[in-house]
């Protein structure tokens, strides 16, 4: 079953077409990779899916629902969570509070509820705490729950972003270069973590530069360049694709 479908999505920034009529679909329960050379438009695709930028044209369907034009907060409420290439945490909040922010879509207490503080509000607060702790536990950060987010190491900050995204029980998790800046050991752990996330039944769609990692864990790979899809398929198919090899390894042949 298809969870996410992009149909002919296009984005112009001024005169520049960053994303040019991309068609793509992510199957439920898979790990799907989006790769391409630097500046090919991968992150823009993520920003369009999550509603950070409005589309110029095209449609996005998620779980059978047309979410084209939804603002970012509404996309999240529908069950789509993401992380960023450049880590985006609430730095002055604790690790636990960061994770608690991920439960927004499962809960509803607002300003009035906070003032009146009926029993259900207290129960909901406990529920948020529980979900957040579980997510932290899952990525292995429950030991630092009370630390300020800005004080934990870089690798942990990346994991915290994942935990925050997981705390809201998303159906689709978008990871934007989760391994950037990680060493080999950390990358291996991350790969194991992504596999465990899939086992929980969460579909993973990721942008990554670390080819080894992409080829190893993704079932499907889409390759884009200059904002257009230039290849799609299983890892082995993509690796054998002439277009893809050209995009990665050379411009045109120049003699030595």
């Amino acid at each position: 079953m298809t969870l996410l479908t992009l149909q002919q999505i296009t984005k112009n920034f001024g005169g520049l077409t960053a994303v040019d009529h991309i068609d793509l679909s992510v199957e439920k329960g898979t790990i799907h990779g989006l790769i391409g050379p630097n500046g090919s438009g991968k992150t823009t695709v993520f920003n369009l899916i999550t509603g950070i930028y409005p589309l110029t044209s095209g449609t996005i369907t998620f779980n059978g629902m047309d979410i084209t034009g939804y603002p970012a907060f509404k996309v999240n409420q529908k069950g789509l969570a993401r992380t960023f290439q450049e880590i985006q945490l609430f730095y002055d909040m604790t690790v636990l509070e960061n994770a608690m922010m991920g439960c927004q879509r499962l809960t509803r207490a607002g300003a009035v509820a906070a003032l009146v503080k009926l029993p259900w509000v207290t129960r909901e607060e406990a529920f948020i705490r529980e979900k957040a702790m579980a997510a932290l536990d899952f990525v292995g950060l429950s030991g630092t729950a009370e630390e300020a987010a800005r004080k934990i190491p870089y690798g942990h900050q990346r994991l915290l972003e994942v935990a925050r995204a997981l705390a809201g029980d998303p159906e689709l998790l978008l990871l934007d270069e989760p391994a950037a800046g990680m060493n080999h050991a950390e990358t291996r752990e991350l790969m194991a973590l992504i596999a465990r996330i899939r086992e929980m039944g969460i579909t993973v769609f990721l942008v990554e530069h670390n080819m080894k990692m992409v080829m190893e864990i993704c079932e499907w790979i889409t390759v884009i360049n200059y904002g257009q899809v230039i290849g799609h398929g299983k890892p082995a198919q993509v690796q054998a694709d002439e277009n893809v090899i050209n995009a990665y390894l050379s411009g045109e042949n120049i003699t030595c």
């Binding site: 996309v75 999240n76 409420q77 969570a81 985006q88 927004q104 503080k117």
Partner: peptide, 21 residues
Amino acid sequence: SRFGRGLIAVRENELAAMVNG
């Protein structure tokens, strides 16, 4: 409260706040 955390989240990082609902 949940509401108050939302306020601080907006102060700390609008981008992260919006993608978290």
